[in-house]
Design a protein around this nucleic acid. Structure first.
Lengths: 195, 195, 195, 195
DNA sequence: TATGAATGAGGTTTCATTCAT
DNA sequence: CATGAATGAAACCTCATTCAT
């Protein structure tokens, strides 16, 4: 009966938004964006369809919000090259280890993004966000390889990126049957990063 | 006055079927299976919606027919390991070269299949066809690495597969901006297959 | 190579027409008019769809042609009341016996007509043909009952008609499980027509 | 500001469901199930096509729901033979009177069910529901005739059923032109049930 | 803030009918 | 006389979105 305080409302809002995003991510990742209906998301999140439209303008807006979250989460992976107190080798090792950790812990985000890469319509909507990120990774790797004195850092960066992408793609497909940990070791060994 | 001969009809049928498959492959690959309507396919193929259903029982049957074509095309890539007159090294070199050629020449097929990997609904329908094929490639690579005397052929095969997948995935995304030819050289060098 | 004579052509025509009607009757009766496609009829009749349209202007025209055949076949059932050399009792006995024979021998016709009775659209198309026929039967029975000296021949005729219709309706539903022969005996006994 | 209460929603739901069923029954009965489109039902019920699918999974499910309603309505017709305080004669009289009343008051239900009997496809879907019911009626009549001391109750029951079916069939066809009330009297007299 | 009944555009599919040969 | 490839209207159905409460 008594009206909720602003703070209480804000908490409720955040909870609802989080539940919706969580449900949507789960369904988008496993069934695909096109095969997931708003009704299904609402049911999974235990809210009404109407509420979803209070927080997100459209199904597409919901997708973009999720992608955005993924991007923000991913930021932490990037080593700060400006930090001169850390050796390039260490940077690379951290990057590899962090990336493996992130993918293992955020399979749904990774799966969703991967599934969108092959849809031009999706790519347009996502405003080059993905391509940009891929380019950034490659560039960063190139700089590290250069600092480490490798001969052809650009091509090495491409190889590095392909290896990571290919490993994670197979992992998404095979899941627990894929030797993910062994592949991490392979990568560390390949760039002479074993501790 | 008389009806068309059987041969004439067969030619017409094959032309229509080819046009429909071609249009569908094109749209499926670029827009995604779920985002492509029968109407769009019919318009692209310059036939009526109804005609598609003369030749394919459903949209899904059309997809399966296209996947089947891809599978048949892909058969030729696999080196015949039984052929003892060819060295393992040569086998591997051929496999790599053929695969690069195939992907370059059949980008749409590759894109379509890649896009389906991340859709569980699609995977079920395709009856493990894709997983099977992937497994076959890995197994084949493992056998070759073993014959070539490498130490841990299984993990090497996984690395090999990841590298190929990652390269092609990036290529599909970046197209002419991706250094595909240089990556082929990288692979040949990596396994000491330069001529 | 040599052109067929007119007579030969006429024979072929009649064969094709008969085959089409036969197939259509069969399918209409068992699957229903609405659930039977022209393709199915053509396949069942072993002719092309186009040929059907040579002989019948439309699916509906084909239905009407079949109904017409049924009507003509049914004409023979009606006893000729003008023939004074036959007693009313004998007329009635013949009518009953002939009707049972006809229904048993022409289940498909009967089933088809019965299924159309409940569809107003069909009734309109069939131009009151069925209502007329039913009325004729009732009127005829009424005349016979009158001649036989019964008290309320009109109501008796309605009862007579209802009994016949009800028996045949159940027979169509239960087929060999229905005691058709026994019901014929019931009717003959009821009107004191046993020989 | 606040959402509708559960009770309000339930009322709305039931109203919509009733309107849809009513419209569908009307059209199914008069035009036939196969000749009635969802669009037509929606228009007749003054709702959108989509709403029908909120409440019924398919056109067929809608049909089944209507048949189910008819079955429930029809339950009341069956006399309770266990009730020893009522004479068989009375039971039979009640059954006849109730059935005539029911058919007069529920012509559409009766017409629909009758029309479905002749469609094998429909019969399969309805899971022998209709055949079962018919068999029940016959069996019940047989028991009554036996208790009443008739000689051949089984055949009498078949005759009884045929008469009822035939009367109602003709009534559905001729409507107000059919002497339904007189036929009821005929039946009561026939089994010596006049009060 | 929250609900879910309702909508309607658009998707997949069927099939009577046409027509070039 | 005969064929069957092709069409397109109309059927069934789905679902993102709106809106009264």
């Amino acid at each position: 009966m008594s009206p909720k305080t602003k703070k209480q409302n804000e908490v409720i809002r955040q909870q609802s938004i989080a539940a919706i995003k969580q449900a949507a991510l789960n369904l988008f990742a496993h069934k695909g964006y096109g095969n997931t209906s708003i009704s299904a998301i609402a049911k999974e999140a235990n809210v009404s369809k109407g509420l979803m439209y209070n927080y997100f303008d459209s199904k597409q807006a919901l997708l973009l919000a999720i992608i955005d979250d993924a991007a923000n989460l991913g930021q932490d992976l990037l080593p700060n090259l400006q930090d001169a107190s850390i050796l390039p080798k260490e940077h690379l090792r951290n990057f590899i280890n962090n990336t493996f950790l992130w993918v293992k812990g955020n399979m749904d985000y990774h799966k969703l993004i991967a599934s969108l890469i092959f849809q031009e319509a999706a790519l347009e909507v996502m405003g080059d966000f993905i391509k940009l990120k891929a380019a950034m990774h490659i560039q960063l790797a190139e700089q590290l390889f250069q600092k480490m004195g490798y001969e052809d850092p650009r091509i090495m960066a491409f190889e590095f990126g392909a290896l990571l992408d290919g490993i994670f793609m197979a992992y998404l497909s095979l899941k627990e049957f894929y030797p993910l940990e062994e592949m991490r070791q392979v990568m560390l060994k390949k760039y002479d990063l074993m501790e």
